[in-house]
Simulated assay, not measured.
Amino acid sequence: METADTALLRFRDATDADVPGLVELIESAYRGDESRAGWTTEADLLDGTRTDAEGVLAVVRAPGSRLLVVERDDDLVACCQLEHRGDAAYFGMFAVRPGLQGAGLGKLILAEAERDVRERWGVRTMQMTVISVRDELIAYYERRGYRRTGERSPFPYGQERFGVPRRPDLEFERLEKELGQEPHAR
Protein backbone atom coordinates (compact mmCIF):
# COMPACT_ATOMS: atom_id res chain seq x y z
CA MET A 1 0.00 0.00 0.00
CA GLU A 2 1.24 3.48 -0.87
CA THR A 3 1.80 6.04 1.82
CA ALA A 4 0.76 9.65 1.47
CA ASP A 5 3.17 12.58 1.34
CA THR A 6 1.92 16.16 1.21
CA ALA A 7 5.06 17.27 -0.64
CA LEU A 8 3.81 15.32 -3.65
CA LEU A 9 0.32 16.81 -3.54
CA ARG A 10 -0.95 19.93 -5.26
CA PHE A 11 -4.05 21.66 -3.89
CA ARG A 12 -6.06 24.09 -6.03
CA ASP A 13 -9.58 25.36 -6.52
CA ALA A 14 -11.70 23.46 -9.02
CA THR A 15 -12.71 25.08 -12.28
CA ASP A 16 -15.63 24.33 -14.59
CA ALA A 17 -13.26 22.21 -16.70
CA ASP A 18 -12.65 19.89 -13.70
CA VAL A 19 -16.31 18.95 -13.30
CA PRO A 20 -16.39 15.72 -15.37
CA GLY A 21 -13.32 14.33 -13.60
CA LEU A 22 -14.68 15.32 -10.22
CA VAL A 23 -18.02 13.61 -10.84
CA GLU A 24 -16.16 10.43 -11.84
CA LEU A 25 -13.93 10.62 -8.75
CA ILE A 26 -16.82 11.17 -6.33
CA GLU A 27 -18.90 8.40 -7.88
CA SER A 28 -15.94 5.99 -7.77
CA ALA A 29 -15.40 6.67 -4.06
CA TYR A 30 -19.01 6.19 -2.96
CA ARG A 31 -21.14 4.18 -5.38
CA GLY A 32 -20.99 1.03 -7.44
CA ASP A 33 -18.54 -1.84 -7.52
CA GLU A 34 -15.48 0.38 -8.03
CA SER A 35 -16.16 2.04 -4.67
CA ARG A 36 -15.80 -1.31 -2.89
CA ALA A 37 -12.03 -1.13 -3.49
CA GLY A 38 -11.94 1.56 -0.78
CA TRP A 39 -13.53 1.75 2.63
CA THR A 40 -15.71 4.87 2.11
CA THR A 41 -18.26 3.13 -0.10
CA GLU A 42 -21.96 3.77 0.42
CA ALA A 43 -22.86 1.00 -2.05
CA ASP A 44 -24.54 -1.11 0.65
CA LEU A 45 -26.64 1.85 1.81
CA LEU A 46 -27.56 3.66 -1.40
CA ASP A 47 -28.04 2.93 -5.05
CA GLY A 48 -28.06 5.55 -7.78
CA THR A 49 -25.67 8.44 -8.06
CA ARG A 50 -23.84 10.39 -5.35
CA THR A 51 -23.67 13.56 -7.43
CA ASP A 52 -23.85 14.82 -10.99
CA ALA A 53 -22.26 17.52 -13.12
CA GLU A 54 -24.93 20.05 -12.15
CA GLY A 55 -24.38 19.46 -8.43
CA VAL A 56 -20.60 19.69 -8.67
CA LEU A 57 -20.76 22.79 -10.85
CA ALA A 58 -23.07 24.44 -8.29
CA VAL A 59 -20.42 23.90 -5.58
CA VAL A 60 -17.62 25.18 -7.85
CA ARG A 61 -19.54 28.37 -8.65
CA ALA A 62 -21.28 29.10 -5.32
CA PRO A 63 -20.19 32.23 -3.45
CA GLY A 64 -18.37 31.36 -0.22
CA SER A 65 -17.77 27.83 -1.44
CA ARG A 66 -14.69 26.11 -2.82
CA LEU A 67 -14.19 22.68 -4.23
CA LEU A 68 -10.61 21.83 -3.45
CA VAL A 69 -8.91 19.60 -6.03
CA VAL A 70 -6.00 17.42 -4.91
CA GLU A 71 -3.56 16.25 -7.58
CA ARG A 72 -0.48 14.10 -7.54
CA ASP A 73 1.67 13.98 -10.67
CA ASP A 74 -1.14 15.82 -12.52
CA ASP A 75 -3.62 13.05 -11.63
CA LEU A 76 -6.81 13.93 -9.77
CA VAL A 77 -6.62 11.87 -6.56
CA ALA A 78 -9.05 13.58 -4.18
CA CYS A 79 -11.37 16.52 -3.58
CA CYS A 80 -13.37 18.19 -0.84
CA GLN A 81 -15.88 20.98 -0.54
CA LEU A 82 -15.21 23.88 1.83
CA GLU A 83 -18.05 26.30 2.48
CA HIS A 84 -17.92 29.42 4.63
CA ARG A 85 -20.91 29.47 7.02
CA GLY A 86 -20.54 32.42 9.34
CA ASP A 87 -18.28 31.46 12.25
CA ALA A 88 -17.77 27.95 10.85
CA ALA A 89 -16.78 26.13 7.71
CA TYR A 90 -18.57 23.14 6.24
CA PHE A 91 -16.54 20.18 4.97
CA GLY A 92 -18.22 17.93 2.43
CA MET A 93 -18.07 16.11 -0.89
CA PHE A 94 -14.85 14.47 0.33
CA ALA A 95 -13.58 11.81 -2.04
CA VAL A 96 -10.28 9.93 -2.33
CA ARG A 97 -9.64 7.48 -5.19
CA PRO A 98 -10.59 4.04 -3.84
CA GLY A 99 -7.20 2.47 -4.61
CA LEU A 100 -5.46 5.19 -2.60
CA GLN A 101 -7.67 4.97 0.49
CA GLY A 102 -6.15 3.70 3.72
CA ALA A 103 -2.67 5.16 3.07
CA GLY A 104 -3.08 8.41 5.04
CA LEU A 105 -4.03 10.65 2.12
CA GLY A 106 -7.43 11.53 3.61
CA LYS A 107 -5.85 12.54 6.91
CA LEU A 108 -3.46 14.90 5.10
CA ILE A 109 -6.23 16.45 3.03
CA LEU A 110 -8.46 16.96 6.06
CA ALA A 111 -5.59 18.67 7.92
CA GLU A 112 -4.93 20.93 4.91
CA ALA A 113 -8.64 21.79 4.67
CA GLU A 114 -8.70 22.73 8.37
CA ARG A 115 -5.57 24.86 7.99
CA ASP A 116 -6.99 26.52 4.90
CA VAL A 117 -10.32 27.56 6.44
CA ARG A 118 -8.58 28.90 9.55
CA GLU A 119 -6.27 31.02 7.40
CA ARG A 120 -8.69 32.03 4.63
CA TRP A 121 -11.87 32.65 6.59
CA GLY A 122 -10.66 32.91 10.18
CA VAL A 123 -13.12 30.26 11.33
CA ARG A 124 -12.47 28.11 14.35
CA THR A 125 -15.05 25.37 13.78
CA MET A 126 -15.34 22.80 11.00
CA GLN A 127 -18.68 21.07 10.54
CA MET A 128 -19.81 18.14 8.42
CA THR A 129 -22.71 15.76 8.10
CA VAL A 130 -22.31 11.99 7.90
CA ILE A 131 -24.91 9.28 7.41
CA SER A 132 -25.47 8.21 11.02
CA VAL A 133 -25.16 4.45 10.40
CA ARG A 134 -21.63 4.89 9.01
CA ASP A 135 -19.96 3.92 12.30
CA GLU A 136 -16.52 3.29 10.77
CA LEU A 137 -16.52 6.68 9.04
CA ILE A 138 -17.69 8.49 12.17
CA ALA A 139 -14.93 6.75 14.17
CA TYR A 140 -12.39 7.93 11.56
CA TYR A 141 -13.45 11.55 12.09
CA GLU A 142 -13.55 11.14 15.87
CA ARG A 143 -9.92 10.01 15.78
CA ARG A 144 -9.17 13.33 14.06
CA GLY A 145 -10.83 15.40 16.78
CA TYR A 146 -14.41 15.65 15.51
CA ARG A 147 -17.25 15.08 17.91
CA ARG A 148 -20.81 13.97 17.46
CA THR A 149 -23.16 16.85 18.18
CA GLY A 150 -26.30 14.73 18.45
CA GLU A 151 -27.93 16.99 15.86
CA ARG A 152 -29.63 14.88 13.24
CA SER A 153 -31.50 15.68 10.06
CA PRO A 154 -33.59 13.43 7.85
CA PHE A 155 -32.23 11.75 4.75
CA PRO A 156 -34.04 13.16 1.69
CA TYR A 157 -35.99 10.00 0.83
CA GLY A 158 -37.71 10.30 -2.54
CA GLN A 159 -35.12 12.73 -3.94
CA GLU A 160 -33.09 10.41 -6.14
CA ARG A 161 -30.41 13.00 -6.81
CA PHE A 162 -29.10 12.09 -3.32
CA GLY A 163 -29.25 8.36 -4.05
CA VAL A 164 -31.82 5.62 -3.71
CA PRO A 165 -31.81 4.30 -0.12
CA ARG A 166 -31.48 0.57 0.40
CA ARG A 167 -32.75 0.78 3.98
CA PRO A 168 -35.37 2.85 5.86
CA ASP A 169 -33.27 4.17 8.77
CA LEU A 170 -30.92 6.64 7.10
CA GLU A 171 -30.39 10.11 8.53
CA PHE A 172 -27.55 12.59 8.75
CA GLU A 173 -25.63 13.42 11.90
CA ARG A 174 -23.61 16.60 12.30
CA LEU A 175 -20.01 16.33 13.47
CA GLU A 176 -17.84 19.28 14.36
CA LYS A 177 -14.37 20.16 15.48
CA GLU A 178 -13.02 23.21 17.22
CA LEU A 179 -9.99 24.12 15.14
CA GLY A 180 -8.19 26.36 17.63
CA GLN A 181 -4.87 27.87 16.75
CA GLU A 182 -2.39 26.56 14.21
CA PRO A 183 0.27 24.59 16.10
CA HIS A 184 3.72 26.19 16.10
CA ALA A 185 6.29 24.47 13.92
CA ARG A 186 9.19 22.91 15.79
Rank of each mutant, 00 (worst) to 15 (best):
K107I: 12
T129A: 11
M93T: 10
L82Q: 04
R143S: 10
E112A: 15
D87T: 11
M126L: 09
G122T: 00
G104R: 03
D75E: 15
I109M: 15
Q127A: 03
D116H: 15
V69M: 13
K107A: 15
G106C: 01
Y141V: 07
E114G: 07
C80D: 07
R115F: 14
I109R: 13
G86E: 00
V123Y: 00
Q101Y: 14
L100F: 06
R134L: 13
A103I: 14
R143Q: 14
I138A: 05
M93H: 07
R120Y: 00
A89P: 07
M93S: 11
V117W: 05
A139K: 14
T125N: 00
A113N: 06
R118T: 03
D73Q: 11
T129G: 05
L110Q: 13
V133L: 08
R118F: 02
I109T: 10
K107P: 06
E114R: 07
G122I: 00
A95H: 01
A88I: 06
G92P: 02
Q101F: 07
R124E: 07
C79T: 14
D87L: 12
L108Q: 14
C80K: 08
G104F: 04
W121V: 00
G104E: 03
M126G: 02
T125D: 00
L105R: 06
V70Q: 12
P98W: 02
E114H: 11
H84T: 01
Q81M: 14
E136T: 11
Q81P: 12
Q101W: 13
A78C: 01
E114Y: 12
R134C: 09
L68P: 08
Q127C: 03
G99P: 09
Y140C: 07
C79E: 08
Y90V: 03
P98D: 02
E83N: 10
I131M: 10
L100P: 06
Y140Q: 10
E136I: 11
I138Q: 03
L108M: 12
R97I: 05
A111R: 15
V117L: 05
R85F: 00
V130G: 03
T125P: 00
D73G: 06
Q101D: 12
F91T: 04
A103G: 13
R85C: 01
V77Y: 05
A89M: 09
L108D: 08
R97M: 07
T125W: 00
E136H: 11
H84C: 00
I109A: 12
D73S: 13
D75C: 08
V96H: 06
R120D: 02
V77I: 11
D73T: 09
